[in-house]
Design a protein around this nucleic acid. Structure first.
Length: 441
DNA sequence: TCTGGGGTCCTAGGACCC
DNA sequence: TCTGGGGTCCTAGGACCC
């Protein structure tokens, strides 16, 4: 007898998506003011800030996240713009995750405010409850335990769950009938393609403005229009992999598994300046100060995660928004602020030679390795006393010494004890860049 | 009134090794 | 003397997501 291919059991995938997450956190953190203001915007910081999240009331004025704050306030001058603490958002996000982990066997955080759940195989545990009922229970539990309202989409894969969550949203324009904005939306098995057929291609996750434009220039706006195109054409326009991927998604297929969250692959920090930093020595000096600051942020998060990094990336955005990066990989992974600064400094010099005004400076690390707990303390101690003895400088200056690491550990300890303001970078850092002469003057 | 900050993934070319 | 592949690592850039 021949082996029968196993009949695939349809999966039960949920996407739990917080409603205007940053707005909710701001209201919980400040119930007196933010909590009582319907027209609330979170984001900002100076003239160059953008809206991170807008309340549903504010969205009625055409305000969207990512919009410049100044523009948002012109559309709705009565709105209140407030910042929100990142730490508070992280705490709430972790609380939500803990609740979900109690209710589902597999939970994957897709971002700070989105979680995929795989409930496949839990039918018996759910005692005959429908998927929609289970989702509703999860939604209520999260609200009760964390104070955060979520919408939940469900389907046989991640793509469908994600799109379904959009229909469950309070302000959903896509949903019709009595179920509109009910907080839960389920696409039953077998209805994926029909569900997709009502969408435009730009609604497919992974189709951004660039791809959407490419397609619309060829007369393709809706999912059915996309599916009518011969695959050969799609391959010619997009390349084999992207074409195949896009078609699969347009059909509502997605076999990406939901897996437990993995540790971060990169850590970074960046800063957009209130005014562009002009070329020249004065501007360079200012950027060196900003680099110290960023290295402190990145280094601290790196060490807090218990990791070391092999590659350092530096990013500069020019005044005209063009962005350039440089990166450098070292043999021995690093973790200290000092090493980040030294490598960052060299990369920065290379990029600033172009003589353009600088709008943004960013520093990041990747190639992260987990620090083993029992790492050679003996060699470290010898090296503290006699730098260069343990590892003679065979390949030029070493990016990091044991002394650098000790110093960073001390800094961390002080900041943990006395708060982040306990230590300041050596140079005073008022983040108002010098106003320089224009480059040609 | 121009466009934040934190990430992930993909592509493509060159170096280098087998 | 000329001519190959394939695999991996590194770097730069870009699209996309929340």
């Amino acid at each position: 007898m021949r082996d029968q291919p196993p009949t695939p059991v349809p999966r039960s995938i949920l996407l739990v998506d917080c409603d205007a997450f940053f707005v909710q956190v701001a209201r919980l953190e400040d119930p007196e003011v933010a909590g009582r203001t319907p027209l609330l915007l979170v984001g900002g910081r100076g003239g160059r800030g953008v809206v991170t999240s807008a309340s549903y009331e504010a969205r009625a004025y055409g305000i969207r996240s990512g919009m410049p704050m100044a523009e948002a306030l012109r559309k709705c001058p009565q709105a209140l713009a407030v910042p929100v603490s990142r730490a508070a958002c992280r705490d709430r996000s972790q609380a939500i995750r803990r609740t979900l982990e109690r209710l589902a066997p597999v939970v994957q955080a897709a971002s700070i405010d989105e979680f995929y759940l795989d409930l496949t195989g839990t039918e018996r545990l759910r005692l005959g409850e429908s998927l929609a009922q289970t989702a509703l229970h999860i939604r209520n539990a999260v609200h009760q335990e964390t104070g955060i309202r979520v919408s939940i989409g469900a389907g046989t894969n991640r793509l469908i769950a994600k799109l379904a969550a959009g229909r469950a949203k309070p302000a959903s324009e896509a949903a019709e009938g009595p179920a509109r904005g009910a907080g839960v939306w389920v696409v039953p098995p077998g209805e994926e393609a029909a569900f997709m057929a009502r969408l435009e291609v730009r609604h497919i996750p992974g189709v951004g403005p660039t791809l959407a434009t490419t397609l619309s220039e060829r007369g393709i706006r809706t999912v059915p229009e996309l599916l009518e195109v011969e695959e050969a054409w799609l391959v010619r326009w997009l390349g084999r992999d992207r074409a195949r991927n896009l078609r699969e998604r347009a059909l509502g297929r997605d076999d990406t598994p939901v897996t437990a969250s993995e540790p971060a692959k990169s850590i970074s920090a960046e800063r957009t300046f209130d005014q562009d930093v002009p070329p020249g020595p004065e501007g360079d000096q200012f950027l060196e100060g900003a680099l110290l600051h960023l290295a402190g942020q990145v280094g601290r998060n790196l060490r807090k995660a218990g990791r070391r990094a092999r590659t350092v990336h530096l990013k500069l955005r020019d005044g005209d928004w063009t962005t350039h990066g440089r990166s450098h990989t070292v043999k021995e992974p690093i973790e200290s602020d000092a090493a980040l600064v030294r490598i960052g400094h060299e990369l920065l010099r290379g990029l600033r030679e172009r003589g353009r005004p600088t709008r943004l400076l960013g520093l990041g690390v990747s190639g992260l390795l987990t620090v083993e707990a029992d790492r050679g303390t003996e060699a470290t101690q010898i090296e503290l006393a006699l730098p260069g003895l343990v590892h003679p400088a065979a390949d030029g200056p070493r990016p990091e010494t044991a002394r650098d690491r000790t110093l960073s550990a001390l800094t961390d300890a002080l900041q943990n004890r006395f708060g982040d303001g306990a230590l300041r970078p050596a140079r005073a850092l008022e983040l108002h860049p010098p106003r320089g002469k224009p480059p040609h003057a």
